[in-house]
Design a protein around this nucleic acid. Sequence first.
DNA 1: GGAAATTACGGAGCGCGTAAAGATA
DNA 2: TATCTTTACGCGCTCCGTAATTTCC
Lengths: 289, 289
Amino acid sequence: MLDVRRLRLLHEFAARGSIAATAAALGYTPSAVSQQLTTLEAEAGVALLERSARRASLTDAGQTLAAHARVVLDAIEAAEADLAVGGEPAGSLVVGMIPTASPLFAPALAGLRRRYPGLELVVRQIESARAEAALRQREIDVAVIDLWRERAMPGLTSVRLRRDPLVLAFPAGHPGRRVDGEVLLCAPADQPSRAATDELLGAAKPAARWEFEGLHTIATLVSQGIGVAVLPESALAEVDPATVTMRPFRPARHRWIEAVVRVSARRRPAVDAVLEMLTESHRRGGDEF
Amino acid sequence: MLDVRRLRLLHEFAARGSIAATAAALGYTPSAVSQQLTTLEAEAGVALLERSARRASLTDAGQTLAAHARVVLDAIEAAEADLAVGGEPAGSLVVGMIPTASPLFAPALAGLRRRYPGLELVVRQIESARAEAALRQREIDVAVIDLWRERAMPGLTSVRLRRDPLVLAFPAGHPGRRVDGEVLLCAPADQPSRAATDELLGAAKPAARWEFEGLHTIATLVSQGIGVAVLPESALAEVDPATVTMRPFRPARHRWIEAVVRVSARRRPAVDAVLEMLTESHRRGGDEF
DNA sequence: GGAAATTACGGAGCGCGTAAAGATA
DNA sequence: TATCTTTACGCGCTCCGTAATTTCC
């Protein structure tokens, strides 16, 4: 029978791309990882790695086996989660969160840490685009991300936390109600928020498009009078409301803030507590669906 | 992370019901099994076994964990099967077969043994009713069974091998074409063939009903002039055709002979070769669907 | 008393770290 | 040269068998 600990190494290798990184991620020496992967190849009876002195990479067989490994690890995680059902939230749990969600939800999670001493909760920043892979790789257990349009995520399950309306943001006291002739601040081309901007303002003729990374950065620039932008309301919550004028779209457009977890982790009490706290803090926030 | 080898012990224990039997089945001593299950309980953090000096049984948590174990083991088996895809059929493979199917398919399987020296093929007899559990417990890898009516078998997949028409069998030269007043030979009440007999001859008034185990036994009794019976054609193939008269039903009734395997084992070359050989020998048999 | 479970103890195997060497950018 | 990988070697842990003990039919 294939050894599952070795499958875990392969799975991690598939994500990291090098033996050294795999070893570092799992707390082993490269030597141990190298030896175990060699043994796994012997068990499998097929070459799993293409090795050179300087780097190793997966063969096709290695990739398919790594995919199987994920299924196996998911099944084990589901078993562990089921064992813990009914118990106190405990163990280590990493929450990945987009920057604009932090002010909304981080305080609630801080309260969770206080309530459950057995819970080691870490909140990290993450991009929405990387969240799916990070969840699958078990780098994080819960992802709080924004979704700009519907998307299927097999093996993952999500809870809607907040509908976040998009608005056109002007510097306060700005005379015009039109984008034409203004400086339009927007995200780089690969960002989903950029796609939304382009779609909503497709007909407009701004004087220029300036690209910046980060909705918070763009919000700050608007508040400083640099230009106008399409932004979700929550990104404007952090700047002085007196400095910005918001105009909603008709029909209304929005992004969703969602919490995403692996289905196999869903039953962990710790995950459950986090999800409950996240939805609860939404209710306190007063936004309705 | 839960240790999968220990999960395998738990899974086997769930099927066997005792530590001694589990140890015997997997080639360990009871001592080893006892120790490993104790360790598994420590890992799980929950009581999995209710122990007395004389016997041990699963707690609720133990049962649910055993169910999870099956999922994990299936995933590993699927990974192994995928690794072997494209290779020569090899390894150990146990085929469970109902008695009436043996003369139809056993010769073909014998040929398979000759063709693939790496294949250790064992054919065992099995009752249809036990086949599903035996497959799940990995006692057998392929089951050749009869199906008297449609039945869902989650986690398993089946291939239809042969439509086996039911006939009314009389001793040769028997004058009457009616069951009334004859001795009706049939299976005990819990057998599916008995249900078919009762359904087909519900209105008849036999002089007596004599119960015997095994369709082949019943076929032999008919050929010896003891009585009449509802039988599948294949059960009559082994007795001297001169001694039996067959009358088909209208509308035609039949049972299916099917090969059933775990989906997780489906891709093993050895399983594939066996299934192919089984369907092929059906074609040679000349029966059409 | 016998069958089934557990505990004690010891040996063998193997997983992993240390150290060193090879290879490539 | 620095980094990534592999090999050699040895320590220590863990698994499992033997044997003895306990408990309940």
